[in-house]
Each structure stands twice: as C-alpha cells, then as structure tokens.
Design a protein around this nucleic acid. Structure first.
Length: 508
RNA sequence: GGCCCGUUCGUCUAGGGGUUAGGACGCAAGGUUUUCAUCCUUGUAACAGGGGUUCGAAUCCCCUACGGGCUACCA
C-alpha cells in the first residue's frame, strides 16, 4: 500500500476561518494516523483576490494550533513548489493536452457575450443557463469557429479561455468516504473554465494537476466542493490519470450558533466570539477581526473543540490531546450533517485545559498577564494564587481579573454586600480577630483556620458574623475563595492592614 | 429555478431492526453547614412528517417538508 498523502490547500484571500482550521486539522490527523504526509499548498491562482499577509497568517495560525506540515512553501519537499503561482508554467501543457485529446476547447466569448447568453437562455428555457453541451455550439469557440478563424484569434492576442468539453449523458460517479456514492449525469455539468485568459489555471485544473503531481491519495475538503467533485473526477479521467484519482472526503460545514447558514465573520461580531484562530487586521480596511489566541484560548482547547465538531470517537471521552486525537481519528466517524458552533462549549473546553495544565505553566502566563496590568509579584505567590483560583476561571485573564485583590488592597467596598453583611458589631469583631491574627506564627491557612474557629467558639459568634466582614475587608466584595486562604497568601502584615483600613472606612 | 448533500434533547452527539433512546454543554433544583464560583447529585429535554418493508423500526426503502451547499475567466 502506498503512503497516504493529503493536503490542505487554502487560498490566501484573508484570514483562515475556523472551519478551514478544522479541515486542516482533519487532514493532519488523517495523515498522522495513517503514517502519511500532510502538505500545505497555497492556492493563489486568483491574483485579484490575493491579500497581503494572508499566507503568513495561515502558516502562523496552523503552527499555533500545532498542525504542522511535512511539505509546504516554507519547508519545501520533493514535490514543490507549493505555491500555485510558482507552478504557473506547469498548467498550460495539461490544458493543451486536453484540447489535443478533444476534451477541451478554446472559447473567445467576452464577459458581455456570456452575460447575454445567460439572459437569453433564461428567457428561452426559463432556467438554468449554462455553458454546456446544449449551448456551446451557439458560442464563439474553437468548436464553432473555423480553424482559420480560431488560429487567427489565438494568434492575434485575443483573450481566450480553455473550457472542458463535458460529454453528453454520462454518469459520473464520485466515491465519497463520508457520503458514499454520489452520482451525477454529465448533462447537468457545465463546460467549466479550466484556464483563464490571464494565463492562470482555475482552481479546478490546478487542484487536479497538483494533486496528481504531488501524489495526493485523499482529498479531504469542505462540503462546498462536493458539487464540483464530478468535474474533478472527469478531469482525472480525461488527463489519463483515472487510476490515480484520490479518494474524496467532503466534510460537513460549520454552522452559525443560532439560525441557519454557515458560520461567518458576521456571526462572530454579532454574538461576541472569534471565528478566526488569530487576530487579523485587514491591510486594506484596517478592520480588526478577533482571534481565539488573543481571546485567551489555549491552542489545545481550540483544537480539541474543533475536532469534536463533526467528528466523535464513539466513546464518552471529550478531552483529547493531539496525540490522542491522532490515535483515535478516523474519517468513518465524521458525521454527515453540519454542526452549529457553540461558543459556550468552547469556553468549557478551555476551562478543562486550565485545570489540567501544570501550575508552572499557568503561573507563567498569569505572571505575563499581571505584568501587562502593571503588577509584579514573586513567582511563589503567583503560583499559590494560580493554584487557588484557576478552578473558578475559564481563561488566564479571567483568573487574573478575579485575583487582583491578592496584589492590590481594595480601594472600594461593594455597598450592596456591605449593607447586607456589615453589621454594627462587625468592626469590634474584626478588631478582635485582627489582634488575634497578629500573634499567629506560622501564618498559614491551617493555623489561621484553627485560630478563627477557636475565636468563634470563645466569642460565641457564628461564622456568618465574622467571615463576610473579613471577606469584605480583604477582597472589597463578597466573592472569592476561603478567607483563610486569602490571608495566608497575602500575609500577616497585609491582612492586618486591610482589616484596619476596612474598619476605618466601611463604618464611615 | 436547477443540481447535490443533509435532518436524534436548545447545542455537540452515541445509536447501524428488539435500548427505560446514552453521554456532554447549557439551563433548573439540592448538597459541599461564610460569599461568589468550582465540584458532586438529581432533574429538564430529542428520533421533522407521512407511507411502506418487517413479528418488530431512530435504525432499511420511497415521498413530502424543512435546512444547507453549489450554480463566476473565486477558491
């Protein structure tokens, strides 16, 4: 059995959509699972739509996700170049080959003529105007023109395209790994342009030629390509590569969380979640689109979430490392129907990873985030805070936000909580507690806890009389972890000082 | 309009003739005897509709409805 070779072939027309990332991921998983190669090929045959920085963005995004290619524009490989614009000279000969074998022809129709044809056909037939076997003989092409005329036009620098000559009434079979056999009659297929007047191939020709030359064994791509798959099958046949036709797998689409339709950038803006892996700034409009990386997602969580959107292992397991995904993945377990993206579940995945990462790694990121907010602290303290606070958060920045009081004494006190829990006797109690805390040594959570309980017994005050006041003094609000843990982390001096300050301020 | 693909809790999904239709997210209630979270427990909720096939259909077939994709000298 020959080695599997799959490719991800994005077009550098902008940032990579998360649906595109998922396509890349499934290709990658399939390649690694089967011990094959994963290649990255840039499909930049449309120079009009080329966007500066898009190619770099795609590569950076894939790398961030840990989706690494074995062959690609930067890494090279035995089948390069991996940018279609650099393969430009390759394609013409195959178009020519098709013309010679009678499977393609030159067409000279101008855009205006094509437009007129469509309008006329629409009027005549009521619908479905196509450049196909039924209409091609009414157009200006090498089939209808005399050889002399045709040659003259070709020689006179007149713009022309090369179209496939779709045969009449033939059944075209696409064998799809996900959907089974899809049959289409060739009468429904039109004479698609294969070679454009600008000297570039269209996607259809280029992807078939490159897949063949790059020895691609499996084409795993989005469902939007299913309608043109029969055309690609025909191309393999006409080029004489029928036995080398790759297996196809058309992936279901990623849908918007509400309503219908595929997930778009608009939905992200509207519902407040990123649809791109990385932040992107449009070089033309300067418009900024948010990314998962900048939103605080771990790449592992992002990838994990994406993997489960359309694929499942058939077990209850939901958290997967990349290694596990590679081990478990199979195209057979990819679903057929589109998946609505659920931003809430995405957060849940990040929460899972925030819990399972090492304290060291979490602390490092917390420290970096704190520094951005102008806070420096020693790593031991940050580690304690991270360990105590991470289970309450989904993201690093959320963790930091909720942990600010560890590093800065409260300047205001939540009035609602104060009104409810700060009683007349509270200052007195807090003064007693603070006096007691002064004597504690060591000042750790266990000792503090014991002292607090001892005080409760002695004084007869219940926890409800003591704790809320302490919390307000330490945090400034009614939220947070156990007060004894807070005290232990901020230390004796700071604890005493915050209590004294609160006693002074909260009671007015 | 035409062609193609699809349809199980609100969402992601398991299920491949016989199940109390399972899990997860979300939501709700209770618990962890200070809060807010986390966490644990419980609950909530689905086979689009109609015909077949069969002793028996979520599972197989057909039709309808609905949804989506494609229908460029874009990918």
């Amino acid at each position: 059995m020959s080695h599997t070779r799959v490719r991800f072939a994005p077009s550098p027309t902008g940032p990579l959509h998360m649906g595109g990332v998922r396509t890349a991921l499934y290709n990658y998983l399939f390649a690694k699972k089967t011990g094959g190669k994963f290649l990255l090929r840039i499909e930049d045959t449309d120079q009009k739509r080329y966007v500066d920085g898009a190619e770099e963005y795609i590569m950076e995004a894939l790398k961030w996700c840990g989706i690494l290619w074995d062959e690609g524009p930067d890494t090279g490989g035995g089948y390069g170049p991996y940018r279609q614009s650099e393969r430009k000279d390759l394609y013409h000969q195959y178009a020519l080959q098709l013309i010679k074998s009678g499977h393609a022809y030159y067409a000279f129709d101008t855009p205006e003529e094509l437009d007129a044809m469509r309008k006329q056909l629409e009027a005549e037939k009521g619908s479905n105007p196509q450049y196909d076997s039924s209409s091609r003989m009414q157009m200006r092409n090498s089939l209808t023109l005399s050889d002399d005329e045709g040659n003259h036009l070709l020689g006179s620098q007149e713009h022309y395209v090369i179209r496939i000559r779709m045969p009449e009434d033939e059944e075209v079979l696409v064998n799809d790994l996900i959907r089974g056999e899809v049959r289409v009659n060739s009468n429904l297929l039109d004479d698609k342009v294969l070679f454009k007047s600008d000297g570039m191939p269209t996607y259809h020709l280029a992807n078939v030629v490159d897949d063949y030359l790059m020895k691609i064994t499996h084409v795993i791509r989005g469902e939007e390509w299913l309608p043109s798959a029969p055309l690609h099958v025909m191309l393999y046949r006409f080029l004489g590569w029928e036995t080398a036709t790759p297996r196809f797998a058309h992936l279901p689409l990623l849908l918007k969380p509400d309503g219908n339709g595929k997930l778009s950038k608009r939905d992200g803006d509207r519902l407040g979640f990123p649809v791109f892996p990385l932040q992107w700034k449009d070089p033309n409009t300067a418009e900024i689109s948010s990314g998962y990386r900048e939103a605080g997602y771990f790449p592992e969580a992002f990838v994990n979430m994406l993997a489960l959107l359309g694929w499942n292992p058939g077990t209850d397991q939901e958290v997967f490392s990349m290694e596990e995904l590679i081990h478990e993945f199979s195209l057979e377990r990819v679903g057929k129907s589109g998946s609505k993206f659920d931003p809430e579940k995405a957060k849940w995945f990040n929460h899972q990873y925030l819990q399972s990462k090492s304290i060291g790694e979490i602390s490092q990121q917390v420290a970096a985030q704190l520094e951005k907010n102008g806070i420096q602290a020693d790593s031991t303290k940050i580690e304690s805070v991270a360990a105590l606070m991470r289970q309450r958060a989904n993201f690093i920045d959320e963790l930091c936000e909720q942990s600010m009081f560890f590093f800065k004494a409260p300047e205001t006190y939540d009035p609602t909580f104060a009104k409810k829990r700060w009683k007349e006797e509270t200052p007195g109690i807090l003064n007693e507690v603070s006096g007691l805390l002064k004597e504690l040594n060591p000042f750790d959570a266990q000792t503090i806890d014991a002292a607090l309980h001892h005080y409760m017994e002695e004084s007869g005050h219940g926890a409800g009389k003591i704790m809320p006041g302490l919390r307000l003094a330490l945090v400034g609000s009614g939220t947070g972890p156990d007060v004894k843990d807070i005290m232990a982390i901020i230390g004796k001096e700071e604890t005493i000082s915050r209590i004294e300050k609160a006693v002074l301020i909260v009671s007015h």
